[in-house]
């Protein structure tokens, strides 16, 4: 259970809009990660989950109009100057990117990648930085780290390189680790290893973790709480166990139904029909309307649903701040009826 104090990472109604698009990339994203807590943000490609994660480091697309707040350790990053951003990036939060082949400069040595921020920003000598790099490579379970320091990225496998990426994220000694699909670019056995490394680091170091993934089962296995995102909005949030047991939003249910179960005999998979809303499409009501099998014309397509606690009928617009108890919140006009329909 997360502590009552100020969350380590807190999004408060974050809105990100790019010129020339029909809808905002992010629309009122409210999300929090407490110190030492593992939280997942789940959604399809293009749902805005990567943009959300990057916002926690102040890495927003250039030319974007932003609203709301993103506070990391109390510092608001929306509109923050370069010095404040650097302070957060070098001391509080760091990010593990999806594809280490693309994320690590191919023409520089692995050792350069690991030591450059320590030497150039942290003011350590080369020897100190290398000692720290060796220590971190050992911590992420890379055998023979001294040799790898002198190698180039193309000489390492994808899994080894993702360990290097994780070690690189740890050089800043962060309190918050942002993981943007850290295993998507890897093969299945390596995925499990990398997730194990991440889980162990998170527990051992008491890190706050925000895991970005499209895999609801992976999210539930790793994280305490889950946020489900669709078309730039949070559509449902709750504890991992709760969300998996009783998915209240049809989209969450759809995500669960379209992946094979981890236990028991796999039944027939039911894909979600249609495609996610592109940035060129705007929805007047619920963004999931066109793909939802419970959609009611004249009701669901009029106003966007607000994140509320599903047990209250009729829906009362409450401030969607996830309280420490992590209540389930859902943004669906028909959430209450659908629960009664006993899905």
């Amino acid at each position: 259970m997360p502590p009552l104090e100020m969350p380590l990472l807190e999004y408060d109604g974050l809105r990100v809009e790019l010129p020339g698009t029909a809808r905002p990339i992010l629309d009122g994203v409210t999300l929090s990660v407490a110190a030492g807590e593992a939280v997942a943000l789940v959604g399809e490609s293009g749902s805005g989950k990567s943009v959300t994660a990057r916002a926690a480091l102040g890495l927003l697309p250039s030319g974007a109009r932003t609203g709301g707040q993103v506070r990391v350790d109390g510092t608001d990053l929306v509109g923050a100057d370069a010095a404040r951003l650097r302070a957060v990036r070098t001391g509080v939060a760091s990010m593990i990117f999806q594809d280490p082949r693309a994320g690590i400069n191919p023409v520089r040595r692995v050792g350069d990648f690991l030591t450059e921020s320590l030497r150039l920003v942290g003011g350590r000598t080369r020897a100190e930085a290398e000692a720290r790099a060796l220590e971190l490579l050992t911590a992420v379970g890379l055998p023979d780290p001294a040799r790898h320091l002198r190698q180039y990225p193309h000489q390492l496998s994808g899994g080894m390189l993702q360990r290097v990426m994780i070690a690189g994220a740890l050089t800043a000694d962060p309190q918050l680790l942002l993981c943007d699909e850290p295993t998507t670019a890897l093969d299945v056995t390596t995925q499990a290893e990398i997730m194990a490394v991440l889980g162990q680091l998170q527990r051992d170091r008491g890190l706050g973790l925000l895991l970005i993934t499209h895999d609801l089962d992976l999210a539930a296995a790793t994280c305490d709480r889950i946020y489900v995102m669709y078309a730039g909005r949070i559509v449902e949030t709750g504890t991992a166990a709760d969300l998996l047991a009783i998915p209240r939003h049809p989209y969450t249910a759809g995500l669960l139904g379209s992946s094979p179960p981890l236990e028991g005999t796999p039944g027939r998979l039911t894909p979600i029909p249609g495609a996610p809303l592109s940035l060129a499409e705007a929805a007047s009501g619920c963004a999931f309307f066109a793909r939802c099998r419970f959609a009611q014309p004249g009701r669901c397509d009029l106003t966007p649903p607000v994140l509320t606690s599903p047990v209250l009928t009729p829906p009362v617009p409450t401030l969607p701040v996830p309280a420490p108890a992590a209540p389930t919140l859902v943004a669906c006009h028909r959430a209450d009826e659908l629960i009664e329909e006993n899905r």
């Binding site: 302070a87 990036r89 690590i104 150039l120 920003v121």
Partner: peptide
């Protein structure tokens, strides 16, 4: 972007 994200 990774390099920037590390505060360089």
């Amino acid at each position: 972007e990774v390099a920037l994200s590390r505060g360089l």
